[in-house]
Computed example of a mutant assay.
Amino acid sequence: MISSIQYGTKTIEFTIIFRQRKTLEISVEPPNIVSVVAPNGTSEDKVNQYVKKKANWIVQQLYLFKDTDFRKINRQIVNGESFLYLGRNYSLQLIDDLALTKPVVNLYQGKIFIKTPTRDEQVLQEAMKDWYKKKALGRVTDRVNYFQSYFNKKPTAIKVKEQQKRWGSCTANKELLFNWRSIMAPSHILDYIIVHEMCHLFYMNHSQEFWNLLSTVMADYEQRKEWLKNNGVKLDL
C-alpha cells in the first residue's frame, strides 16, 4: 500500500507493509525509499500519524543520501588483486579446492586467501562480500562496546547492511546500521563512523548539539570526517 503525508513543504511518500508483528517500524533507503512495516490490521490513519511523528528524522535521513556518492571500483577476483581491510591493502590469492562446497575466505600473513571449488566471478564476489560483512559486524560491535562508556543510551541492535548512500544510520527504534564497506576504512575512520551514529541515539539530526556531543567523545572528528568525504569513494569492491 502506498501512502503519503505532508511535512512542511515536503511530501513524504512511503510504502506500508503489513506483517505479523507488534510494533511499527520505519526504514529509509537510497535513493528516496521510505517503508513502514506495520502489524496486521493497523489502520492507514494510525500509520500516517506514526510517520508524521517521525517526519523530521525521515527528512534528515533522505538528506544524508546527498553526502556520499559511492562509485563502483570493480576490483576483479583474480590473483594479485588488491583489497582494502582497515585501511591496508592486501593481495588476493586464489587456491583451488574441489573438496569444498563453497569458497572460504581468510586473512593470513598479509594476504587474503580464497579457497574455492569454483572460479565463478559472481560466487567469489559474494564470498568476499560475506567475509567483509562478518568482519565488519565483529569489529563494529567491539568498538560500540568500547565507546559505550561515553554514552548513557544503548542501541537496541547493531547490524551490518548493504547501504549504497550511507556509511551508517540510526533508526527511529535506536538500531545502529552500518555499511559493510566501512570495514575497509582505517580503524580511526571506522571509529568516527561508529561514534557519529552513537550520537544519533541522542540527536536524530545534525544540530549544533549533535556536533557538540560528538566533539566531547572525539575532539578531532572534523579531520576524520574530511578524510571520509575525500576518500570514501575508494572503499568498495
Rank of each mutant, 00 (worst) to 15 (best):
residue 166 R to P: 00
residue 113 F to V: 06
residue 119 R to W: 05
residue 215 S to L: 00
residue 57 W to L: 03
residue 176 L to N: 09
residue 12 I to F: 15
residue 86 L to N: 03
residue 115 K to A: 09
residue 25 E to S: 10
residue 100 L to I: 09
residue 4 S to R: 05
residue 237 L to K: 00
residue 123 V to W: 00
residue 95 I to V: 06
residue 136 A to Y: 00
residue 86 L to Q: 09
residue 233 V to M: 10
residue 40 N to G: 13
residue 137 L to H: 08
residue 109 Q to W: 08
residue 66 K to M: 07
residue 83 F to E: 07
residue 138 G to F: 12
residue 127 A to W: 08
residue 143 R to K: 10
residue 138 G to P: 01
residue 55 A to E: 10
residue 176 L to R: 14
residue 201 L to A: 05
residue 208 Q to H: 14
residue 77 I to S: 05
residue 79 N to H: 13
residue 24 L to V: 01
residue 104 V to K: 14
residue 151 F to I: 03
residue 224 R to F: 04
residue 59 V to R: 06
residue 61 Q to K: 13
residue 147 F to N: 04
residue 202 F to R: 09
residue 154 K to D: 01
residue 70 F to K: 05
residue 229 K to F: 14
residue 12 I to L: 15
residue 115 K to L: 06
residue 193 I to P: 01
residue 152 N to S: 03
residue 182 S to A: 15
residue 149 S to A: 10
residue 48 N to G: 08
residue 155 P to I: 08
residue 198 M to S: 03
residue 100 L to T: 11
residue 121 E to T: 11
residue 219 A to V: 05
residue 59 V to Y: 15
residue 92 L to W: 00
residue 200 H to F: 09
residue 148 Q to K: 13
residue 15 T to C: 09
residue 234 K to G: 09
residue 155 P to S: 12
residue 127 A to G: 15
residue 104 V to R: 12
residue 95 I to T: 10
residue 150 Y to M: 02
residue 174 K to P: 01
residue 126 E to N: 14
residue 191 D to F: 05
residue 63 Y to F: 10
residue 206 H to G: 02
residue 83 F to S: 06
residue 233 V to R: 15
residue 164 Q to W: 15
residue 128 M to L: 14
residue 61 Q to M: 14
residue 102 K to G: 11
residue 89 N to R: 02
residue 121 E to A: 09
residue 103 P to Y: 01
residue 203 Y to T: 00
residue 217 V to D: 11
residue 208 Q to I: 03
residue 212 N to I: 04
residue 139 R to L: 15
residue 74 N to A: 07
residue 7 Y to E: 04
residue 29 E to G: 02
residue 42 T to Q: 08
residue 166 R to T: 01
residue 236 D to S: 15
residue 11 T to M: 05
residue 220 D to M: 00
residue 235 L to N: 10
residue 134 K to V: 12
residue 34 V to G: 01
residue 14 F to C: 02
residue 20 Q to S: 13
residue 162 E to W: 09
residue 103 P to I: 00
residue 84 L to A: 09
residue 181 R to M: 09
residue 32 N to D: 12
residue 165 K to V: 00
residue 190 L to P: 00
residue 179 N to V: 07
residue 43 S to F: 09
residue 67 D to N: 07
residue 159 K to G: 01
residue 87 G to I: 05
residue 45 D to F: 08
residue 63 Y to N: 11
residue 208 Q to E: 10
residue 75 R to L: 07
residue 226 E to F: 04
residue 122 Q to F: 02
residue 61 Q to S: 11
residue 21 R to A: 08
residue 200 H to D: 04
residue 52 K to P: 00
residue 219 A to F: 12
residue 206 H to M: 01
residue 155 P to N: 10
residue 66 K to S: 13
residue 207 S to A: 04
residue 34 V to H: 02
residue 175 E to R: 15
residue 69 D to F: 15
residue 44 E to L: 07
residue 230 N to D: 13
residue 23 T to M: 02
residue 102 K to C: 12
residue 142 D to I: 08
residue 57 W to N: 03
residue 83 F to D: 06
residue 26 I to C: 04
residue 194 I to Q: 03
residue 3 S to T: 01
residue 54 K to E: 11
residue 56 N to M: 05
residue 133 K to R: 07
residue 50 Y to S: 08
residue 128 M to K: 05
residue 184 M to D: 12
residue 12 I to Q: 05
residue 41 G to V: 07
residue 9 T to P: 06
residue 76 Q to M: 13
residue 89 N to Y: 03
residue 225 K to E: 13
residue 212 N to T: 14
residue 54 K to S: 10
residue 46 K to Y: 07
